[in-house]
Design a protein around this nucleic acid. Sequence first.
DNA 1: CATTGACATAAAGTTAGGTTTAGGTATTAA
DNA 2: TTAATACCTAAACCTAACTTTATGTCAATG
Lengths: 144, 144
Amino acid sequence: MYTIGQVSQMFNIPISTLRYYDKEGFFPNLKRSSGIRRFGEQDIEALKVIECLKESGLELKDVKQFIKWATKGSSTYKNRKELFEKRKIAVEQEIKKLQKTLNILEYKCWYYDKAIKDGTEDKIYKMLPNKLPTRIQKLYNSFH
Amino acid sequence: MYTIGQVSQMFNIPISTLRYYDKEGFFPNLKRSSGIRRFGEQDIEALKVIECLKESGLELKDVKQFIKWATKGSSTYKNRKELFEKRKIAVEQEIKKLQKTLNILEYKCWYYDKAIKDGTEDKIYKMLPNKLPTRIQKLYNSFH
DNA sequence: CATTGACATAAAGTTAGGTTTAGGTATTAA
DNA sequence: TTAATACCTAAACCTAACTTTATGTCAATG
């Protein structure tokens, strides 16, 4: 049995966060003695599950849902898989979007790099697109 | 000259958002006639800059900073480049993190796929790591 | 006996980027 | 003339996941 301070140290999670999780119902079996929280094996396990699922980018409400399903046993495998499947698709899209963002940023960096070297932006605007670095051409076209 | 409603339609941005940008000072040259906003060329340009910089994942306060620098001319090329450079690094890290997340999700999907096929999770726990699909082995090791 | 430290609570605050609401003005069409 | 539109403002609300604050209990230590 651990106190909240001990758990906080073990997992490197602020005490306030643990209390918050408790308030949100993530430790349904948490015991208390004279008002003080006593974290047992089950609660530690619950915390590990929270940490792990947060790692996979799930929101707390999804973590809650997952825990509900998990306690219902093998009849909810499908629900759980769908949860992860959906999240997987969302993450894939996020990555794609960030990669587009990265392209734009590459262009911006190239642009200001050149402006710094030239001392002006004017030359860039006068450049013929086919004189641009290949890597930059496509980006250039989408901005002008 | 356009009204807020026209700009809203042209850019497909809610009117409330345009008012919000105005309140935040993104249209320093916005004119009004009898209280009503009149968007001119400059304001439209400002809006395009906002849209573009948001595309590159900048926060509004960075967009604001950028606009300040941009109005100061060529002496701020370096600042502007640094802004994008920093953002680029941040985005690269975000992508890396999401790719880790994706790995976890791949594992989770595989796990529940197998659990559904087997009707139980028990078999997975009894599997020898080297019998797992190669793609999964590394993930398995980091979870058990 | 006073203070320190660990625990407790409820409620308010934080962050960003808006959106919604409640109330008012001004123009135009039927 | 009244009804619909389009515009205006200030202020409250929203989300998510916490954090901070104000206040209080309790046990051990000096």
